[in-house]
Design a protein around this nucleic acid. Sequence first.
DNA 1: GATAAAAATAACAACGTTGTAAAAATTTGC
DNA 2: GCAAATTTTTACAACGTTGTTATTTTTATC
Lengths: 326, 326
Amino acid sequence: MSVTIKDIARIAGVSYSTVSKALNDSPLVKKKTKEAILKVAEQLGYQPNMAAKSLVSKKSQIIGVAWPTVERPAWSTLITKINDLLGQQAYHTLLSINPVDSAITIFNRFHVDAILLFQEESRGRPGLPQSTVPILCYGKPEGQLSAVDVNRRKAMFAAVRYLYERNHRRLAYIGDLSPNDLIQQEKYIGFAEAIIQFGLPTHPLMTMNTAGNSADQGYRLTKQLLHSAYEPTAIVSGSYDITVGVMRALKEEGVIVPADLSLISYDNIPQMASFDVPITAVGAPIERIAAGIVDSLFAIINKTKLSPFCKQIEIELVERASCQPL
Amino acid sequence: MSVTIKDIARIAGVSYSTVSKALNDSPLVKKKTKEAILKVAEQLGYQPNMAAKSLVSKKSQIIGVAWPTVERPAWSTLITKINDLLGQQAYHTLLSINPVDSAITIFNRFHVDAILLFQEESRGRPGLPQSTVPILCYGKPEGQLSAVDVNRRKAMFAAVRYLYERNHRRLAYIGDLSPNDLIQQEKYIGFAEAIIQFGLPTHPLMTMNTAGNSADQGYRLTKQLLHSAYEPTAIVSGSYDITVGVMRALKEEGVIVPADLSLISYDNIPQMASFDVPITAVGAPIERIAAGIVDSLFAIINKTKLSPFCKQIEIELVERASCQPL
DNA sequence: GATAAAAATAACAACGTTGTAAAAATTTGC
DNA sequence: GCAAATTTTTACAACGTTGTTATTTTTATC
């Protein structure tokens, strides 16, 4: 049986409402009594009962994170960052790895203050369950919900421009083009737009579809590309995982980066620096995404923004050693 | 404002205690009224308020999982399995990625029914915070808490015996021997015990310390081993990740598995089958671990076992293609 | 059709908090 | 040292449920 506010009251010889106030550091209670009460609470190892607390206050200090795909390592670091940032504001995160629908239902039952939805890929039409709790999407916006989004199109555009400005003309794109994954497609659209805008030549083998984000596919397609007739001077890779495969293939084939071939990758994460040749990469840095998400979370909790919004995270190109001018 | 039991009562024209009973399918309410109430609840999109519920019932149907290191992929699948199993019993999991201490504190505040502690490595002395909620450890037992544990020692012993029975005599061990990680050490102890018991010859290069569980180290050390004077006929690898590195090195060096060299790995996971040569592996299958954990969770919730226990998960050796008799 | 027994419903006190209104204790001003 | 003003403390009603007890309605018996 856990110790309650009433136990403290009895021992400290005051009423339980005084204890409540003391515990919340209310100015309505005398400093001396406050200290005495705090000491008793301490000794008894008092832990507030959140159920009771949130029942009356309608606040839980909890952000529910719906994370249907635990097994996606790229998001682990992001969640860790968000958790840290939220912790600084006395908020806690609770993750659910259930399917989105049931996660939302559970979080509603628990009256979390806000829900953060990690959306692997924009799902089809069937809408989300009704939610009293405000929801923020990361990944792809969903219906009328507020969202935080990375401008992937712009990122890839910037990557091509970067290459173009360094006199590269024959480019190749290795990435996921699955028709049901809009997120991946957006990257490719950015690439394609830039190709057109800068008037770069195209080629049948210019874009290679990994149909997924696996290093293995990146590896296989790079080999295929290398043995083909098309000889690009630079490769644009769609993700970190793919880049892992690309680099392995390049190494095996004795292609020197960046002397023989330049490589720029999507995914602005620190791991990009730990390849044999540190990879120049483009994308939104994790810290910035995390900060953007946390800000937006507070926005929807405090209703500072009235209508659904979509916050775009600005991208960044980090120059490392994997590209060189022609 | 969410809809409560009283709203339903008002609309259905009954008292709210009847609604409560109807919602819980109590035999005390007439079938006809029950149906009527259920229909109203449905229409109103009623979601029970867990805070209120758990305040009175002292049950939350929630298992808190303390998972300080999200970034450990091996555990993602395990957690997914546990979540599924628990879901079948109408329990839900909530994960906290905060440090163990604060995770326990939060879960206590929320009165979860039990806490599952994933312990990366046995930490030093400083004990855990006081907890009213029963705690189950996975990984290394901690203090007086109940635990589920895999007999890693036995697993590695079995691996060596398997090799021994197939006439291998010169063995090599590639794994993590970090002094602060008892879990990894236990594996090595099993290996060493078997070496002694079967009277196998030793060699200075017989054990290679990866100091961590990275594929890269496995790769590097395998290369080093291959270029050394010691010529083992079989390698015992300490983990899946290490095996990834070992296999890559072997392939690069043109060593054929199992013709030139046999390989057996710790970690009984499905991925072991997806190498070029499917890997014979030893360890507790994920399903069995998950089932063991869930059983134990119910044991501590229902207090069927009176004192702290330590459930050992039996290991299994899965024969695939990476070993061959000499 | 009145009475007892059984079934269905309603009333209400918990659970551990917070916040508001009322009461008690202390300080101030003269 | 007494009333008024101020500070501090207490009492009590919420919050949304559950479970127990009391009440009402229905059914069965003669």
